[in-house]
């Protein structure tokens, strides 16, 4: 049975969808069969993040209505043939009940090694539907007080569900600021929230513009996501150090203020 991992945050706009897309790409690039599920009904964007928005024929709402089978709704990535997307319904989320959603995720887990669930923002019914279907959770935050505060509340809520493991991913980390003490670092945030850190993902203009990283490129973002994927596969390991490029004699020499 594949692993069912929900990516959640509480606060919107911290990068859950971007992380689901990029983590999914990295896991698939390493050879795993991966299904990405957009659980955000109404404000869905995982299809756009993956560049698959023009390929949607059926979605999870159609499966709930009995209009199609699960296989018919899955969209295969055109480059990584072991990566699939199950798009969300655009409207009327009530018909995708918690039970139906969980049974769809369970069916996916029979054919995929990883099922990543993109949870909607907030802590209402959409959150509940997504979390109930998962066995593991990754809580996403950014180094901003309001985001960390909401992540803390989500972590408390997750403890009331049947979730086997919870970890923290800190997105949009500015290594240049945290090395100077101008911004909280990822490890510091994980320590405050008393949760293991599974990923520190650097701020990247390319991601902001294009949404997904080129997983073949050897840049800081890909290194960070590669370590993230390794952490998920191995159940632990190294986390990318966002400050590594901003330390050392030559960096300080280059950036000294006269």
């Amino acid at each position: 049975m594949g692993r069912r991992i929900v990516i959640t945050s509480g606060k919107g706009g911290v990068g859950k969808t971007t992380i689901v897309a990029n983590l999914g790409l990295q896991l698939a690039a390493s050879g795993a069969r991966v299904a990405l599920v957009d659980a955000d009904i109404g404000l869905n964007n995982l299809d756009v993040a993956l560049g698959m928005e023009h390929k949607t024929v059926y979605d999870i709402g159609d499966i709930a209505d009995g209009k199609c089978r699960l296989k018919q709704a899955l969209i295969r990535d055109e480059h990584l043939h072991n990566l699939y997307l199950l798009p969300s319904a655009k409207v009327n989320g009530a018909r995708v009940t918690t039970q139906i959603f969980s049974s769809i995720v369970n069916e996916l887990a029979e054919g995929f090694e990883f099922v990543l669930i993109d949870c909607p923002a907030g802590i209402e019914s959409g959150f509940h539907r997504a979390v109930i279907a998962a066995h593991e959770a990754i809580t996403v935050t950014t180094p901003h007080i309001s985001a960390v505060r909401d992540a803390d509340k989500v972590l408390s809520l997750l403890s009331t569900y049947n979730i086997e493991s919870v970890a923290l991913a800190v997105n949009r980390v500015r290594g240049d600021l945290s090395v100077k003490g101008s911004m909280m670092g990822a490890e510091e945030i994980a320590h405050l929230l008393r949760v293991p850190l599974c990923a520190a993902l650097p701020e990247d203009d390319g991601i902001s513009v294009f949404g997904i990283a080129d997983y073949n490129k050897k840049d800081k973002t890909n290194r960070a996501y590669k370590l993230f994927a390794d952490y998920i596969v191995n159940g632990g390991g190294r986390v990318y150090n966002c400050e590594r490029n901003y330390k050392g004699f030559f960096y300080k020499l280059k950036n000294r203020e006269d």
């Binding site: 007080i145 960390v148 945290s178 100077k180 003490g181 101008s182 911004m183 909280m184 670092g185 405050l192």
Partner: peptide, 10 residues
């Protein structure tokens, strides 16, 4: 010191 202040506020 903004980082330290942010940790304190948090």
């Amino acid at each position: 010191n903004a980082g330290k202040h942010a940790v304190y506020r948090l």
